[in-house]
């Protein structure tokens, strides 16, 4: 433990409203903490700069999985384990289940939350690619009201989001009906478990015969934030994947992805490797259609 815990304070308001009131009173003073799987690591190594924490881990209002006709609504305080155990998510959103299983260890999954995974805003986070491919929307809440937006607009840059200091992520809503889509997800990490993504790609596509009618791609560690690959999607719209045209389609896809991939060199991998493997994963998906 490289931090002096006596220099930190933590409050645990009894309700969501109380938490929002505290955030509204002194915006920016408090950092929300849910499962703590990121912040406690920073505390342990002496690098947690935020000294006032507000716990939202216990707030029942944020921990739910609700299913209606059109969508599955997942509270920001829902844990990875909750997600992995949800029958509804397993049936409708297999890529989300898969990505939840990647995160850390079982102990991490028992504490870590979907909201934390998104708000921590790591470009390498496990669940965003699936949520981006599925076209999720996010609901943000503050003492002054709520707002809803496409999740693809949520991330503004490296570890930067649209979230205001007085706001919390309330829930993520994911459309349900992907039964006629082909679905693909793959994480390339530093090892097969307890690893951080070098690159990850989630992809869904709907075919009309040999033609791509709709395709959506979400990626991790491809840019400074979790990203939906809109240019590549556009390039693939209405492209043919039959034997005669597949190679051309794959080439177009790789070229388009290269224009929007902006990976970096870091301690885990290289930009060149990330860009090439992202393209290989996309090709793997296209050839599997």
């Amino acid at each position: 433990m490289r931090s002096d815990v006596s220099l930190y304070d933590l409050s645990a308001p009894p309700s969501l409203d109380a938490a929002l009131a505290i955030l509204a009173k002194e915006p920016g003073k408090y950092t929300p903490i849910a499962g703590g799987t990121e912040l406690m690591v920073a505390l342990g190594v002496g690098r947690l700069v935020q000294h006032s924490l507000i716990s939202i881990q216990h707030l029942r209002e944020l921990r739910f999985i609700r299913v209606d006709d059109k969508a599955i609504h997942i509270g920001a305080g829902t844990t990875f384990t909750d997600i992995r155990r949800s029958q509804a998510i397993a049936e409708d959103l297999p890529l989300l289940i898969q990505s939840a299983s990647w995160t850390g260890s079982i102990a991490n999954q028992n504490r870590g939350t979907l909201g934390g995974n998104i708000c921590n805003a790591s470009p390498a986070a496990d669940t965003p690619p699936a949520l981006l491919a599925y076209g999720a929307t996010v609901r943000l809440i503050s003492a002054s009201g709520t707002r809803t937006m496409p999740y693809s607009d949520f991330h503004l840059g490296y570890k930067k989001t649209v979230l205001r200091p007085d706001e919390l992520l309330h829930s993520i809503s994911v459309p349900r009906d992907f039964s006629d889509y082909r679905q693909y997800i793959r994480k390339v990490g530093t090892r097969n478990a307890q690893s951080i993504s070098k690159i990850a790609l989630a992809a869904i596509a709907k075919l009309e015969g040999d033609t791509i009618a709709d395709i959506r791609l979400g990626a991790a560690s491809l840019t400074d934030r979790p990203v939906r690959c809109s240019a590549t999607e556009a390039a693939l719209q209405r492209q043919r994947i039959d034997g005669a045209n597949l190679d051309a389609t794959v080439r177009a896809a790789r070229a388009a992805l290269a224009t929007e991939a902006k990976p970096i060199d870091d301690i885990r991998s290289t930009a060149k490797y990330r860009a090439a493997v992202a393209a290989n994963l996309l090709e793997e998906f296209l050839r599997s259609l």
Partner: peptide, 26 residues
């Protein structure tokens, strides 16, 4: 898997997140 990343003689990945030891899954 296991690579010590050195910079001017200092180990840069002196934590188990980035010094990659294989797990049972590997």
């Amino acid at each position: 898997y296991e690579k010590c990343v050195w910079k001017e003689g200092r180990m840069m990945n002196n934590q188990m997140t980035n010094y990659i030891m294989p797990t049972s899954a590997d």
